[in-house]
Design a binder for these strands. Structure first.
Lengths: 340, 340
DNA sequence: GACTGGCACTCGAATGTTCTGAGTGCCAGG
DNA sequence: CCTGGCACTCAGAACATTCGAGTGCCAGTC
């Protein structure tokens, strides 16, 4: 049904439309890309492509624009992910290398991704579930108030305050600190929850209430959904490039950005750092974002994903470059995190 | 020059324009507010107000809109800050009370502020400069890699990694930890920098290189500008309400939001939690934000500001309500922080 | 002297009309 | 199967017209 040239035509249409954001006609198409055939022939091909649902006409006397299906075909079959230039790669590494701590890595990543892709960038914080305990610190703030600090293998630091009705013995704290660390160090947070349960048993009955309340707080920290779903967002200013179609391209995205839960769903469950997930227009789970595409991937070690990152932009984005950028950034972040 | 009634007219104009976002004419003004005089009289007053520069006409056959000077007069003389309803106050406290840690307090505050004012909200993290050391933890990650964790009186947790060429003696670490804490505990970060300088002296010459590098890292953390200037932003979706005038109201704000340095300047140096700073249109330091007003205040204890928070919105905002909301939120955040 | 009703005037926005040209589909001929 | 030619369509630009909200000013009234 669709021979080689028709696909060439589709590719040309997508590339042209992405570049100009204007419906492309048969003549301009032949002029700009050397297709080696006449406009009339292209028109026939276009009719076929429209028949198949890959392109559409905004109105009778206008050129064609790709449909979601058209972009899909383009992404799957007609394009290759663009690799970044050496200079760009260097810029990425040097920019990320300057990070102070995990928070800073995430913030820098968002910034970077937004800047390179010129889209809105989203980066999920490394999952607690998939990381392990590096250290647990128990600090006495006041005699009746303790601060728990949990440091994970990915560099995340979680803190919680625990109040206790009576003054707390300093010796007990030291004891607790060392026990917690011997029991939990190196354990996955998911496993740690079970190990934790046994900790109160190790202490004298009189101390158990305090120990239990600390354990409970830790358990909460380990499994807290709010914590789990932390994400950083950036590059909203890039939306200004679509100011012409505010209602369609800017408003829904701005609104979605406020709803982190939505963003997480949007990023989807890319669990493999090797794969790029592309959701085009209606393919994504939110009606309001039907004019929007998402390019996402996981980052982390090769074998295991820590979290997801990606960008959100209008369906008429430059997929090859964007995909290349997302992939590259994910790789470098993974690397930075592995090093630290 | 400006008698009582002229001021009434100005007040009415501001209120009407804020409500409708449309130039207000003499007739509608008389209809909506009971000024007790005829449109013709109001017209004369309007002419006077225009003469004085408080209002202006977008074009000859249109009504009047307030100028920046008009808003200024309104804010200073013609309005009183609106206090929140009991229900709203309750909502604020209960929402903020649920916070897990400092990060969470800040995030919740931004969200809250954005929601109540229906504007873009900005909250600066409590300044490191003005807080004191609560605890310093030194954790061994690997024999050659240490993690420093600084916990401040405001609940901020800063972490830094220190690498060392040789394996580090565990005993030394314990020693260092306790010395650091005895020397620094309770000190202002600003004072702490001087106290820190003396720490290496306390150790055997062979240990000094390591101690020195740790001290340097801590010093950096204490004074880091990047850290100092952390802010959280939210409510960008509220900008969608101004979609009609995208170029003037939405674009510049979105762009400013990306530049945290600009935002900090914008919040200004409100150092007194008792005062509300209002910058109207051209009064603020950025040309591009000339159609934008900022309402900001400091939060922290009564005697001392920890940091600043505020909102950014179009000049034609509801100042009394907005100011009330900003003030209220600042107070409650101060309270929450004082409690923890 | 301050306020008001009346009136002529202004001009942006809304509405209507026409024109133009990019782009199409289709067909007959190479 | 491709191409040049041709009639057709229709959104958007350009222009003209109307409409009315709002103004400034003035003469008259309290």
């Amino acid at each position: 049904m669709l021979d080689e040239r028709k696909l060439d035509v589709l590719r040309a249409i997508v590339e042209d439309y992405v570049a100009t954001h204007e419906p492309v006609g048969s003549k301009t198409l032949v002029d700009r890309h050397n297709l080696g055939v006449s406009p009339a022939t292209v028109r026939n091909d276009m009719a076929a492509l429209e028949e198949e649902g890959y392109i559409t006409q905004p109105h009778t006397s206008a050129g064609r624009i790709p449909t979601d299906a058209g972009y899909r075909l383009f992404v799957d079959k007609l394009s290759t992910v663009k690799t970044l230039s050496v200079a760009e790669k260097k810029a990425i590494t040097s920019f990320l290398a300057g990070a102070i701590d995990l928070d800073d890595v995430v913030r820098r990543t968002v910034r970077l991704l937004a800047q390179i892709t010129r889209q809105v960038a989203i980066v999920q914080y490394p999952s607690l579930n998939r990381s392990s305990v590096r250290h647990i610190e128990v600090v006495t703030m006041t005699p009746r108030r303790l601060l728990l600090v949990l440091i994970t293998s990915t560099g995340r630091v979680e803190q919680r305050i625990v109040e206790h009705p009576n003054d707390v013995d300093e010796q007990l704290i030291a004891d607790l600190r060392s026990r917690l660390n011997t029991v939990l160090a190196g354990q996955r947070l998911t496993e740690a929850t079970t190990s934790l349960a046994a900790v109160p048993e190790l202490f004298a009955p009189s101390d158990r209430p305090l120990v239990a309340s600390i354990v409970t707080t830790l358990l909460e920290a380990f499994t807290d959904e709010v914590v789990e779903q932390r994400i950083a967002v950036g590059g909203a200013a890039n939306l200004t490039r679509y100011g012409d179609d505010f209602e369609r391209n800017v408003k829904p995205v701005l609104e979605a950005l406020e709803e982190h839960v939505i963003l997480l769903k949007l990023l989807g469950e890319a669990t493999n750092p090797q794969t790029l997930t592309v959701r085009i227009g209606h393919e994504n789970p939110f009606e309001e974002l039907a004019t929007t595409s998402v390019v996402a991937t996981a980052y982390g070690s090769k074998s295991e994903a820590l979290a997801t990152l990606g960008i959100v932009g209008p369906t008429h984005m430059d997929y090859p470059s964007t995909m290349g950028a997302v992939r590259a950034v994910a790789r470098y972040v993974s690397q930075i995190l592995a090093d630290s």
